[in-house]
Amino acid sequence: MSYSLVSLFSGAGFLDFGFSENGFKVIWGAELVPYFAEANNYNHQLRYGTADNPVQAVDITTVDPADIPRTTGIIGGPPCQDYSIGNSKSPGVSGERGKLVWDFLDKISRLAPEFFVFENVAALYRTKKHREEALEPLIHQFNELGYEVYFKVLNTLDYGIPQDRSRVFIVGFKKQIIQTLNDSGSDAFQWPVQTYENPKKDFEWPTTGDAVPVLDEYEFIEQMNLPYELTVHSAIGNESEMSNLRNHVYFTPYSERFQTVAEGDVKRKSFKRLHRFRYSPTVAYGNNEVHLHPTLPRRLSVREALRLQSVPDWYAFMDNTPLDKMFKMVSNGVAFKLSSLLAVQIKSVLDNYHAIIAKQPEKTSVH
């Protein structure tokens, strides 16, 4: 079965496409920033050969829920800057962006989808103020609306993605769905199974001083006692492959630091040089944060950043998109592979539920 989807705070679509590639169809979306919405729609056309532009460049707070199509599910990640530890003021739920979590809640309340997915920064849970003022009340309200709510902080590294990126996820299903599955003995929602339990501590990662000669790197790969898929090299190590992909573009080097920062030196606030055989820090380019290629005297390219976000190579930005805009879209997105894994788990719940309902004509689907 395929299920309809509404996307709120859609961004450039990494979360959306994780679902679209796994049995869901985005029928409507809302994204405040026009070039984000444009990139999202462009990739819908690029991937699915459609002329549709499902994502509207609109402020979702001004949209009447009556004007949003009825849908099986709603997904989205309200802007996270007001909760981020990188924001010195970090006003949380009282900030202009922070309070948008309540708009997400309002849309769920009014549209009553069968399920929803809410995503945000890990600080929403890890910072006591944000947890007590936003996260816990939000979960409580979802529960009051009749949803069975599942909450977890997921780190991309645990799922085979070479990036240390933790995010809060809240998944909700109408309680009738979960009750029906429980009554029939079927599995209810399960989080995706982690590939690695504690990869940052379980493996001995090379340090800044452990540089590997370029000519010996493949011999090093054969001998290293690390999961290769968790290394930066696994995503961007083949420069000839990268050069044949779209969006393999980067800012022109301008500073001596592009030459002098040691491989693996990621302790600094900016000009962090990645290590080929470590995972990447959180992809967060912009706001003066610069990540350098492990061995070349330049920043990472847009395509390299996309690779570290596990975004498939078919995804592309239009060639005339400014570099800073492309990097911002990559940084704001959800890791595609993690979105896909969540979509598979959610679709399994819906498939099982609707199969049970189909065998019980006297019952109807949730409303």
Rank of each mutant, 00 (worst) to 15 (best):
F9T: 07
K128C: 08
P79I: 00
I161F: 07
P206D: 00
G237V: 08
F151H: 04
W205H: 13
V26A: 15
N155Q: 07
Q141Y: 10
M326K: 13
S270V: 00
E217I: 03
I177C: 01
P213G: 07
E222P: 00
H354D: 03
S310G: 12
L135N: 08
S7Q: 06
F251N: 13
A188T: 15
K337V: 11
A51R: 06
D319G: 09
F142N: 01
L215M: 07
F115V: 14
R70C: 12
G92W: 06
E217A: 07
A134L: 12
E263I: 08
K25V: 00
P322F: 09
Y228G: 06
E96F: 05
E96Y: 14
A51M: 04
L230M: 08
R110P: 07
P79F: 00
E256F: 15
L338I: 13
M1K: 14
R47G: 10
W314M: 01
Y147S: 03
H293Q: 06
V6P: 11
K201R: 13
E217V: 02
P312Q: 02
V232S: 10
Q45T: 13
D183A: 11
A284I: 09
R97W: 02
F327E: 08
E229W: 10
S2N: 11
F24Q: 02
H291A: 15
P297T: 00
F220D: 02
V302W: 09
G76Q: 11
K267F: 07
I177L: 05
T321F: 06
S301K: 03
L5Q: 04
S20M: 14
V193F: 00
V93A: 10
